[in-house]
């Protein structure tokens, strides 16, 4: 057998053996056996000296060809084995992806905070800033300056918590509505006789039996706009804008005449029922309408009390409950869930 033949035989053998190498270890053993320092192919190259001089170049060339071919085959095989092995590792590492994730404690904003922020954002777009007024209020601000003197029948509209004050001192109460803030906002701004656009959110308090529908503490949001030519149609347009942004586009508005001592004319603003759309259902008591705000043009006496001359200025005001909209939207049947703070309720928002 010539060296040439021997070389071809080794080559064939190596190719066959490579096919059989099934994993990294087998592959490395194959490499050592054929292409390593003492590998059979390597040893073949060293046999070149035994050949006649004129055959050496051809043999050398062939040896190199064989070595290169085997190196390439090895590399290809190595890649295939690596991929197969990785696949096996990944397959064995499979997990049940339906198992729950590591728990992370989650915080939640109170539903009232969420509603208030929504309303702040809507009125901010219309140029209204938030103005805050106290919870413990002077009787004069809650009633008298709003055109509601003592014993006036209009006082019946609000059942009042009175603060214990020493006899002879001016009386304090827990504000029954956010309207006293109107006087405070006007008196603050009157010094520069500025136009006003403010909203006044806050806790209000009523001396009422606590039931699923009424709480002794609740939130209201008052709006006040004072300018030189503000009209009732501006109020209606603003309420419509609000309803569309808050309850969704396509809302309808209904304005009814009403009575509040501090507005003239006074109206109540309804929107078509968010549940039935106006057809009539239990939520709207089959009227098709839901009341969203009490409102009106600021009474001249109130403007005067706030430091604005009614001959020159006019304005509108509105007041709305904060819990009622979310009670309707989420079908909450008990207002006591809000400030009773049952987390099983609050965590749903």
């Amino acid at each position: 057998m010539t060296l040439f033949e021997a070389l071809e035989q080794v080559y064939n053998e190596a190719q066959a053996a490579l096919e059989l190498a099934g994993d990294s270890a087998g592959l490395e053993a194959w490499y050592a056996a054929y292409l390593g320092r003492k590998g059979t192919v390597t040893l073949q190259t060293r046999a070149v000296g035994q050949l006649p001089k004129d055959e050496r170049p051809a043999f050398g060339q062939r040896v190199n060809e064989v070595k290169q071919a085997l190196e390439e085959a090895y590399a290809a095989r190595a890649e295939a084995i690596k991929q197969a092995e990785m696949l096996r590792t990944l397959e064995s590492g499979a997990i049940d992806i339906t198992l729950p994730g590591r728990p992370v404690p989650q915080g939640h904003l109170h539903l009232t905070t969420r509603t208030l922020r929504q309303i702040y954002d809507i009125f901010a777009m219309m140029g209204f800033e938030v103005f805050e007024a106290p919870d413990v209020e002077l009787e004069a601000y809650n009633f008298d300056l709003l055109n509601i003197p003592d014993y006036h029948p209009a006082r019946d509209m609000w059942d009042t918590f009175w603060v214990q004050t020493p006899p002879g001192e001016p009386r304090l109460l827990l504000r029954t509505h956010t309207s006293p803030g109107q006087i405070r906002a006007m008196r603050e701004r009157a010094t520069h006789q500025e136009p006003i656009r403010v909203i006044l959110p806050g806790k209000c308090y009523r001396y009422e039996q606590i039931t699923a529908r009424s709480e002794h503490q609740f939130y209201q949001l008052e709006g006040l706009a004072v300018g030189r030519g503000i009209t009732l149609t501006d109020l209606i347009g603003t309420m419509h804008q609000f309803a569309e942004l808050f309850y969704g586009t396509g809302r309808k508005i209904r304005v009814r005449s009403s009575y509040f001592p501090f507005t003239e004319p006074s109206v109540e603003v309804d929107t078509n029922c968010i549940l039935c759309g106006g057809g009539g259902c239990g939520v709207c008591k089959y009227t098709g309408w839901l009341e969203i705000a009490g409102a009106g043009m600021v009474h001249p006496v109130v403007l005067q009390n706030g430091g604005y001359d009614p001959a020159e200025w006019s304005g509108f005001a509105f007041g709305m409950g904060i819990e009622r909209p979310s009670m309707m939207k989420y079908d909450v049947s008990d207002i006591r869930l809000y400030y009773g703070n049952d987390l099983r309720f609050l965590r749903q928002f």
Binding site: M126, R197, G227, G229, T231, T233, D234, I236, G237, I253
Partner: peptide
Amino acid sequence: PHTLIDEPLP
């Protein structure tokens, strides 16, 4: 009709 306040902002 429905209108919006047509006046300078405060």
